[in-house]
Design a protein around this nucleic acid. Sequence first.
DNA 1: TTTTACGTACAGTTTATTCTGTATGAAAAT
DNA 2: ATTTTCATACAGAATAAACTGTACGTAAAA
Lengths: 163, 163
Amino acid sequence: MNTPRTEQITDKIMQEFSKTLEMFDLTSSEARLFAHLYISVKPLTLDEMAEALGKSKTSMSTNIRSLSDLNLVTRVWKKGERKDLYQANSQLFKAFMNAYIGKWLEAASHQKQSLKEINIFLEGHEADEISTELTIIEERLEDIIEFHRRIESLFKEIKMEEK
Amino acid sequence: MNTPRTEQITDKIMQEFSKTLEMFDLTSSEARLFAHLYISVKPLTLDEMAEALGKSKTSMSTNIRSLSDLNLVTRVWKKGERKDLYQANSQLFKAFMNAYIGKWLEAASHQKQSLKEINIFLEGHEADEISTELTIIEERLEDIIEFHRRIESLFKEIKMEEK
DNA sequence: TTTTACGTACAGTTTATTCTGTATGAAAAT
DNA sequence: ATTTTCATACAGAATAAACTGTACGTAAAA
């Protein structure tokens, strides 16, 4: 009773680690899968993952694809092995920050652009109809654009630091 | 057809703004509600929100509570008004960053603590059973703790900067 | 060529989340 | 004191997300 099985240990680690990974917008399945791959010594096949996590192979396939799209997981070759093997990117911080910052930057800049276009449109039609309401909306819109500007600049700065 | 109704404009703004707000882990309802409150000139009642967003009053009540817990929205007093009035915190960036960074810091530090405890436990029992597997797990665990350390320190740094 | 083994598309099911309507208690109005 | 108006708790309905099993295409093995 003094030396618990390694499985219990890894379970406990995975449980805590997964919670953090979910903060990077992984689903709980993705998070658990990544955690398991990371702790695991060797690259794993879809069947092994399914077995280990008690989920279907299909589910592992889609989850691995998501993780792979985020560059958190890599496919790996092994001589004479027919099945696909995957392993976790070992550079935890770098990999997750890249994925996360990229996601923010892309979204923020995209939305900022859309908002700017609305603003330009508004400015163009301003002369016609000088309603108080529209003026206030335009003020708000500019604040919202500024908000996006600051988000973008914050994440760009972080990106630089992490270089 | 040249001067669209203000409602169409605000809808479009809300649509883009909400997407960004969802990145701060608001649900789409919360995001839309906040966006509407922010763009709106005056503080609103639950009934007005429900009317404006086409949702039930109950739904507004719970959403407002969530936003309020995050200090994104404030209750406001108006003489002789019986209903509760709410308005959006006008300091967009500050308010959202506070909420967001706080959430990360709390989670990261909590999980780091749990992981450290596992590690201490492992170190204590290391002498007994020097299995290769356990050694590797311990290595991984230390990397995971380091990962948490870096997350914490990054967000603390951001918190300082935004001061 | 035929057979076997693999990954994944897809449809249907299960599970989780979000939303609504009714009910209740508190406070203001009558 | 009674009635009305409000916010929210709660249970059930609607919606969305996650998971599974079957089926299919591809590629290796026989």
